[in-house]
Write a protein that binds this DNA or RNA. Structure first.
Lengths: 153, 153
DNA sequence: ATGGGTGCAAATAATTTGCATACAA
DNA sequence: TTGTATGCAAATTATTTGCACCCAT
């Protein structure tokens, strides 16, 4: 468990530093938002982050959360993912990785795999333009949803 | 060019048949929407399809386009893609394929590649759940946008 | 003929923006 | 102190829904 705690601390650090280095202010609100997003592995949407942050900063407004997450995403400090209909969700995992998306419940899980990381732009892609990031998306139904389906059906 | 025309005709056919086989009606409006989406390779959004269809069916309403595209996507006849912020876009290419997304102009181009098609769910993915589709996303800047950048800068 | 599909309008969801105030640097 | 960030509210964008009428099967 300590590893996870350390990892979260490292992310908080990295995001805070990223803001500072961009000449932006590390406000009370931003620090708490960073803490939430760094600790949440479920790829939360803005509303979810908002609710979590409000427990520590009850007066924070929803649009501050919108703006802060947008700011972090613009600097490439976090990733805005649009895998499912509905609100955009954010990923604070800075390492190169891929995703599993459950089309039933909306679960998004990071997938780490060296072979996938080794994928290079194809000749066709090189012709289209410059490639800055490559990621693989696995769509399907997560195990819990499969059990639920079986029971209902 | 004939090949392209044939391909579009085949897609129109396939989508029309798909609707029929699902027990749905092939209305005048639906047929025209299908014709537009089958011929458009730019992954258009609802608004774009609406404008194109209106040239042939001036009285069509925007929400009929919303509903028809949603219906086609539900049956898996077309693909709803959410790569960029803003409106959802649709892909009528039924073959397994991947995407290049330009982060500047929003261009989405299909990428075909047998090696990428050969990717299998990793052990980690198999543990998470059942995988129905795998696709690779290349993000970057398309050649035209690169030139534009160079000129402006 | 009849039930699904359409058009219209209103509702909802997601996100962005303008502006006065507050606070980090 | 000096602007940048915040909170509030209103505006915008994207999408969905309710309902009466129409038409493909």
């Amino acid at each position: 468990m300590a590893a996870r705690v350390d990892e979260v601390a490292r992310r908080v650090d990295q995001l805070s530093r990223g803001l500072r280095e961009a000449g932006l202010r590390l406000t009370h609100q931003r620090l708490e938002i960073v803490r939430v997003i760094a600790a949440d592995e479920t790829h939360p949407d803005v509303e979810t982050v908002y609710r979590a942050v409000r427990e520590r900063v009850p007066t924070i407004s929803l649009d501050t959360v919108y703006r802060t997450l947008a700011t972090l995403a613009e600097r490439g400090l976090i990733l805005r993912v649009l895998f499912t209909p509905g609100p955009a969700r954010y990923d604070a995992n800075p390492a190169r990785h891929h995703h599993f998306v459950c089309t039933h419940c909306g679960l998004i899980r990071d997938v780490e795999n060296a072979d996938l990381d080794a994928i290079r732009p194809t000749a066709e892609v090189a012709r289209i333009g410059r490639c800055d990031a490559i990621s693989v998306q696995f769509r399907g139904v997560c195990a819990p949803c499969q059990s639920r389906e079986a029971t209902t059906a």
